[in-house]
Design a protein around this nucleic acid. Structure first.
Length: 712
DNA sequence: GACCTGCTGCGGGTTG
């Protein structure tokens, strides 16, 4: 039977109404998989391939008859915006057949939530944090809401796999299963991912054979791409020629211009609008990032989506996931992304019009960024993508979930709590001793309290304070912010810092402002219009780069490869970068330590986890490691009579245990997360070891390369 | 070298 024939008459009718002539390849595969098997299904493919319908056409076919009486589908999304977006898309499928669909997140009115609770039926769209709030604030309603649940659909499932938020979600879903004593089918929707074994484990570790991966690899569309280099003059100043070139490129086209920081977005918006104004144009470039007020961002999204004249949006990764901004002619990336998957997602945002090709313009403004841009682009072309690693030994989330569970049960025997933890998919591989240590520690600190007679655990005084905070629901870290107001209108936020003063001039939401009042108690700043300003400084924490990118960079530097998609300046710059490596005949199987008197610069060209582990090993061996930069250049101070290569040999030939590596880790370098501060030191170290240290691959890195000390 | 994500319930006042 064809996919179409498998669908219910009502769904077939929908397809006629939507005037679809054919299914996308992913839909063609997903429909029979969902209808004809009982397996969990992961649907993995690029943007705009119709994954939502691939899941919901067959799901609706299966639940059509029963969904009016009870809740059949729980749809989980990482973004409220995505819920609002998908609501309309799914609603149009549910219309006429009377299947209700409900939204539940922080912006949804209480009255609507109450209405849903009175008669839970059909489909519920929710965020992980709102599931958490159900467990805390509406505990007794959970069986009533979920007891007939058949499907759990997780949208953008890839965004949960490697982060604490994913562990929280995994735990919450396991807890729902426990309450209703039933396991609904899981349907995951994902951008292209790798490491399917891991995804299967995540979804159903008890029975990975019952998880089916439906995967579409390549791109349907032709990809046109080009790289140009505009060397920075000073560290922080990009040349005006770069902006002139972007202006040229976007004069007749609608573009998303991705920058790597909010600061760059603000600065570029002002500059590009100045260039446009010189040509007599009005506002043409709009900024988009998380510190711009939501209303303003919505306005920008709408302006871009609806505009018929060429208008462009300048954004951070805020526009990487599925927010709808209409069709885009060209994607511009200024300096390299940190991951291959990010570039892949971004270029998927262009050429959404039928038949048009995707256009990608890369720019680099520094030597490292040029090589990294090439490496990342080459890996995209090889169709490689970072595999999921998972979030290991999640004691911080266990801490959080123990509080949540104690609230849920309102008193639970310790043995029963441990049993619940061990049977939870999120925590099944944690050691029982560690769980016990954490429980004891929590009782000691009055986060939990052990009731004397009944021997039950309840939430303690300190735990109550943590639980009752608005901050409890989410498990990721955020910074303290000032809200910035012009009159009564909020413009956005800036990081709270003692260095912000009255009369400071800032750029925010693409406009210039002067601060005239700071209300530190209420975290509010008041501004008026100004004619000059600099973007505010936002602080962030660097992410990890995969080993494969480092290796690719070294391959590019050591080879003579000519890239036909790069301009002359980029080619000249690359040539310049290659000179020392070529003159010393360095090969990709080698790594170089450049020596200038007492100072050594070791260019690791590998991934973050490996070069950090190596740095800590070097410290443990008494080597004075000074700094390490984002691409893994380790600066070492060592007198000339000492031999660094001998230290490498020593490290290579030693037997390492994680505790030895930990001796080289500085306090400020240890693992940090929102709830890690509440953990006993040993468990925090254990998290650091599991997530940040990789002894095996570091030793094999040392064994597989030849290291050369070259005097400069 | 960074970016992104979400979130009470209740009482009191106002509005339709």
């Amino acid at each position: 039977m064809s996919s179409f024939d498998l669908l219910s008459p009502n769904m077939q009718k929908k397809i006629w109404e939507m005037r679809w002539e054919e299914f996308t390849p992913i839909q063609d595969k997903a429909i029979p998989a969902i209808i004809e098997t009982d397996d969990d299904i992961i649907i993995s493919s690029g943007t705009a391939s119709g994954k939502t319908e691939a899941a919901f056409l067959p799901i609706l076919t299966l639940i059509e008859d029963t969904a009016k009486q009870s809740l059949k589908v729980l749809y989980v999304s990482p973004l409220k915006a995505l819920i609002n977006n998908q609501f309309e898309r799914i609603e149009s499928l549910c219309k006429d057949i009377g299947i209700p669909i409900h939204k539940w997140h922080g912006d949804v009115l209480q009255s609507k939530k109450k209405k849903f609770i009175q008669n839970p039926a059909g489909i519920l769209q929710i965020t992980p944090e709102s599931i958490e709030s159900l467990f805390i604030n509406r505990t007794s309603m959970i069986p009533h809401i979920f007891n007939k649940l058949d499907f759990i659909v997780i949208d953008e499932i890839h965004s949960f796999l490697d982060v604490e938020r994913g562990i929280q979600l995994r735990s919450l879903l396991a807890r729902i299963e426990k309450v209703i004593n039933k396991r609904p089918r899981y349907i995951g929707l994902s951008a292209t991912i790798d490491n399917f074994e891991f995804v299967k484990q995540w979804v159903n570790f008890r029975n990975t054979d019952r998880v089916r991966i439906i995967h579409e690899k390549g791109y349907d569309k032709e990809l046109l791409y080009h790289l140009m280099h505009f060397q920075r003059i000073e560290a922080n100043k990009k040349p005006i020629e770069l902006y002139e070139d972007i202006r040229e490129l976007t004069r007749e086209a609608k573009a998303i211009i991705f920058c790597n920081s909010r600061e760059e977005v603000e600065y570029s918006t002002v500059l590009l609008n100045r260039l446009a104004q010189k040509e007599g144009e009005g506002e043409t470039y709009y900024p988009h990032h998380s510190s711009i007020d939501k209303k303003e961002r919505k306005f920008v999204e709408k302006t871009i989506a609806e505009s018929t004249s060429p208008k462009s949006v300048i954004a951070t990764s805020s526009l990487e996931l599925g927010i709808d901004i209409g069709s885009i002619d060209i994607v511009i990336q200024v300096d390299s992304t940190y991951t291959v998957s990010s570039l892949r997602q971004r270029l998927g945002r262009s050429g959404r019009k039928q038949g048009s090709s995707s256009m990608l313009q890369l720019y680099s403004t520094m030597e490292d960024s040029l090589v990294q841009s090439l490496a990342v682009m080459e890996l995209v072309l090889e169709k490689w993508v970072e595999p999921s690693q998972g979030y290991k030994q999640p004691f911080d989330i266990l801490f959080h979930q123990i509080i949540s569970m104690c609230q849920q049960y309102n008193g639970i025997k310790r043995s029963q709590l441990i049993q619940e933890i061990k049977s939870n998919d999120a925590f099944h591989d944690l050691d029982i001793e560690d769980i016990n240590e954490l429980l004891n520690y929590m009782i000691e600190r009055e986060i939990l309290e052990q009731l004397p007679v009944v021997q039950e655990l309840i939430i303690g005084i300190v735990g109550e304070r943590i639980l009752r905070s608005r901050e409890f629901y989410s498990v990721f870290m955020t910074r303290e912010q000032y809200d910035v107001f012009s009159g009564t209108k909020q413009i956005g936020t800036i990081d709270k810092s003692p260095f912000i003063n009255i009369k400071d001039r800032i750029i925010l939401a693409g406009k210039l402002w002067e601060i005239y009042d700071i209300d530190s108690k209420r975290n509010k700043i008041y501004v008026s219009k100004a004619s000059q300003g600099d973007p505010p400084k936002y602080s962030g924490d660097g992410g990890k780069i995969h080993q494969r990118i480092g290796e690719k960079m070294m391959e590019i530097i050591c080879s003579d490869n000519f890239f036909e998609y790069i301009d002359e300046k980029a080619a000249d710059c690359l040539k310049e970068i290659r000179i020392p490596y070529h003159s010393y005949e360095v090969t990709p199987q080698q790594r170089v330590i450049w020596r200038k008197k007492d100072e050594l610069v070791f260019e690791t060209y590998t991934g973050t986890t490996i070069y950090q582990t190596l740095m800590w090993m070097l410290r443990t061996k008494g080597v004075d490691v000074k700094t390490v930069d984002g691409v893994g250049r380790i600066k070492i101070t060592m007198p000339p009579e000492e031999d660094i290569l001998k230290v490498f040999d020593d490290i290579k030939n030693s037997t390492w245990c994680a505790e030895d590596v930990m001796k080289g880790v500085l306090e400020r370098e240890t693992f940090v997360s929102k709830f890690s501060f509440y953990l006993p030191e040993r468990l925090r170290d254990k998290m650091h070891i599991a997530n940040e240290i990789d002894i095996e691959n570091t030793l094999s890195y040392l064994k597989s390369y030849t290291f050369r000390l070259i005097e400069l």
